[in-house]
Amino acid sequence: MSTETARIEIAAPADEVWGLVGEFGGLDTWMAGVDSCEVDGDVRTVVTMGMKVQEQLVARDPEARTLTYSIVGEGAPVDEHRATISVAEAEEGASVVTWAVTVVPVDATGMFKDIYQGALGHLKTHLEG
């Protein structure tokens, strides 16, 4: 297995950024291309690019500002998936957001990193205006 990490610095306080990315059911409020996001228990169903993908919440730590989830069931071209998005404080009231992903098959890892990097770019635009 191989882990890839998307990363971006955002000119917004970490608590403000976490307020968006830390909401498991709020993906459709900031991630481009997500048509809807509905939560049932610890599973969210994300409708994006004509696909319906189910993701299960693995861990959420508001103090550390981390959220880990895995794709479960059908809907994505992977056998295994685990991703963690985290928000850390940076200098002068800014934040650093990372989105690490491990996928099987390994050759799909780069695709997910690219998707997450694009999503982080959209998050930056959303927060910075």
Rank of each mutant, 00 (worst) to 15 (best):
V46C: 09
S36P: 04
A108T: 13
D28L: 06
T84S: 13
A59G: 08
E9V: 14
T45I: 03
L57D: 02
A76G: 11
H81L: 00
G73P: 06
Y69I: 00
A83M: 00
L57Q: 01
C37A: 14
A64Y: 03
D15Q: 12
E80V: 01
H81P: 00
A119M: 14
G50A: 08
M49L: 13
H81A: 00
A88P: 00
A90N: 08
W30K: 02
V97P: 01
G33W: 08
D42W: 04
V106T: 13
V21M: 09
M1T: 09
G19F: 01
E4S: 10
L120C: 08
A88H: 14
T84G: 14
E63S: 08
W18S: 14
D107E: 14
V21W: 05
I85S: 05
D107G: 03
T102W: 00
E89C: 04
M51A: 11
A108Y: 11
K124W: 03
K124E: 10
A6R: 01
V72F: 04
A119K: 05
E23D: 12
D114Q: 12
G25S: 11
R82A: 02
S95C: 04
G75S: 10
W99R: 05
Q56K: 13
V106E: 15
D114M: 15
G22S: 13
S95M: 03
Q117Y: 09
E74D: 11
H126L: 12
E74S: 09
M51V: 13
G19P: 02
T109F: 03
V46T: 06
G110H: 14
K52Y: 06
M1D: 07
L127Q: 07
P62A: 12
Q117V: 10
Q56P: 04
Q117N: 07
A11C: 05
M49H: 05
V72T: 11
W30N: 07
E128W: 13
V21Q: 06
A88M: 11
G118W: 08
M1K: 06
E23N: 12
R60M: 14
L120R: 02
G110A: 15
T125Q: 06
S36M: 03
E23Y: 04
I115R: 04
D15I: 02
M111Q: 07
M111R: 12
G25Q: 07
G41S: 09
G75K: 07
D114E: 14
A108W: 05
K113C: 08
E16N: 08
M49V: 11
T68E: 00
S2T: 10
E128L: 12
L120I: 13
A14T: 02
I10N: 04
